[in-house]
Design a protein around this nucleic acid. Structure first.
Length: 444
RNA sequence: GUCCGGAUAGUGUAGAGGCCCAUCAUGGAGCCCUGUCGAGGCUCCGACCCGGGUUCGAAUCCCGGUCCGGGCGCCA
């Protein structure tokens, strides 16, 4: 049973440009629906790219084939060989007049959820039965777009002289402090799942790789419980030598608008399936200083902020709405954060060390990315680690890289799922991950 | 962690102390039907999260538990 025998075309590839009227083809996929009208029977076959109507007229076709078709069980896997008939009355402008229908596997019944869009299912139900959920065009569309976005990200980096790297996800010590880590057993030692490639990509700068990017999983053991947090997420990370924070902000905003443009160009049908109309964000993004952000929040929100506080959710929304109302754009930067509330590796300004050369890239609804120019001076770095209450001994492997020629450098990390979520306006970040890991969900 | 809300057929829902051996849709089984487009018509099938309590009577009220959703916190 060769593949060519089971499928010669995807449903979306059947059109007058590629296929002749009357040509014999084989489609393979799932039984989406069976509409038995008595004297005529329509079987809708669905594959990854779309749907095709298989039409059987009782009088004109073998009786056994007709009976077999009308008894097909929904969501069973079939392969149908027949001749193409371009027909205005058919949904996609063509139908398949079958000679042979092979049932490759029969689906059980009842199904865990509806695939036709007639009955909604809750996210939890959908995630429990992701294999069925993915058969819905809306769900597939999200992952096709995610794929295209990641593809565009790689293109952008490669075009701009970046090297793709892979750093360890199993590590000996906490990297940055702050977030909680998942402990694991590593032979007879305790180890952790890495929360960020931060320290490693900086070591690569000492190694002279100059411009690196990495797209990989990060793990956070926080017991947060919101629509925008995951315990296993995908981080898009960048580190650039001989650059400051403004240089890498430029890379970031250009990347974001490039990805939007590519998705708009290459994912038309997926965007349509989701009912999403995208607009390319205008660059450069607005830059607000931390001090300006405090003023905006204190002027416009119930929530009052003092210098040195981090932004709360309400504050993020207040500023996001302000930016959207005044510029019509959703993306913006918050720059010049207090050194104290940023990680130890953020470079303080030489002339006002209470401020750091750091930034967050925000979407109207949430934080997407944070970055900074990094400290490349070993003594300063060591004292910053200690002043944040961390033990510098645990950072030996990292600090060593700074003592034999570390160039000045800057970088950022962006949450891939949040990026996709804000792009598509999905209500829950779990919608953007095939098998999300959150505080409660460990399976499937 | 905290506050608020919720749990009814496979799925999504109605239900506010007796109207409920529970509504509707979808689905499944069967019958009718030659162009369906979420086809249509008829018949049947399938459920009150768990434990305790109040009451003559509980899906409905109360208490405890479990699970789920949302806001905030933590965090990216």
């Amino acid at each position: 049973m060769s593949l060519a025998k089971l499928r010669t075309h995807y449903t979306a590839d059947v059109n007058p440009e590629k296929v002749d009227n009357g040509q014999k083809i084989t489609l393979a996929g799932w039984v989406h629906e069976v509409r038995d009208l008595g004297g005529i029977c329509f079987v809708v076959l669905r594959d990854r790219e779309g749907k095709a109507q298989v039409t059987l007229v009782k009088k004109k076709i073998d009786k056994d084939l007709f009976d077999a078709a009308r008894r097909l069980v929904r969501e069973s896997v079939i392969s149908v060989t027949g001749s193409v008939k371009f027909e205005e009355k058919a949904p996609n402008g063509y139908e398949l007049l079958p000679e042979e229908i092979t049932v490759l596997n029969v689906a059980g019944s009842p199904l865990p959820m509806d695939t036709t869009g007639k009955v909604e299912a809750e996210l939890d139900t959908r995630l429990d039965s992701r294999f069925i959920d993915l058969r819905r065009a809306e769900t597939t569309a999200v992952f096709k777009i995610r794929h295209q976005a990641l593809q565009a990200i790689r293109e952008y980096f490669v075009e701009n002289g970046f090297i793709e790297t892979a750093t360890p996800k199993v590590v000996a010590t906490a990297t940055e402090g702050g977030t909680a880590l998942f402990p694991i057993t590593y032979f007879d030692r305790e180890a952790f799942l890495n929360q960020s490639p931060q320290l490693f990509k900086q070591i690569l700068m000492s190694g002279g790789l100059d411009r690196v990017f990495e797209i990989g999983p990060i793990f956070r053991a926080e017991e947060h419980d919101t629509r925008r947090h995951l315990n296993e997420a995908t981080s898009i990370d960048v580190e650039v030598s001989f650059a400051d924070h403004f240089d890498v902000m430029e890379i970031l905003e250009n990347l974001v608008s490039y990805v939007y443009a590519q998705v708009i160009e290459k994912c038309k049908s997926s965007l349509e399936a989701l009912g999403v109309e995208l607009k390319v964000p205008k660059t450069p993004f607005l830059k607000l200083t931390y001090d300006e952000v405090i003023e905006i929040i204190n002027a416009r929100s119930e929530e009052k902020m003092q210098w040195g506080d981090d932004l709360g959710t309400l504050g993020e929304h207040t500023v996001g709405d302000y930016v959207y109302e005044t510029t019509g754009e959703s993306h913006y930067f918050i720059i010049d954060w207090p050194t104290e509330i940023k990680p130890f590796y953020a470079m303080p300004y030489e002339d006002r060390p209470e401020f750091s050369k750091s930034f967050d890239m925000m979407h109207r609804t949430m934080e997407l990315s944070s970055g900074a120019q990094r400290i490349h001076i070993p003594d300063l770095l060591k004292s910053r680690i200690e002043s944040q209450g961390l033990d510098s001994d645990g950072f030996d492997f990292y600090l060593k890289a700074f003592e034999y020629g570390m160039p000045p450098h800057a970088g950022w990390g962006m949450g891939c799922e949040r990026f996709i979520m804000t792009m598509l306006g999905t209500e829950n970040i779990r919608d953007t991950v095939l098998f999300p890991r959150d505080r409660r969900r460990l399976s499937p």
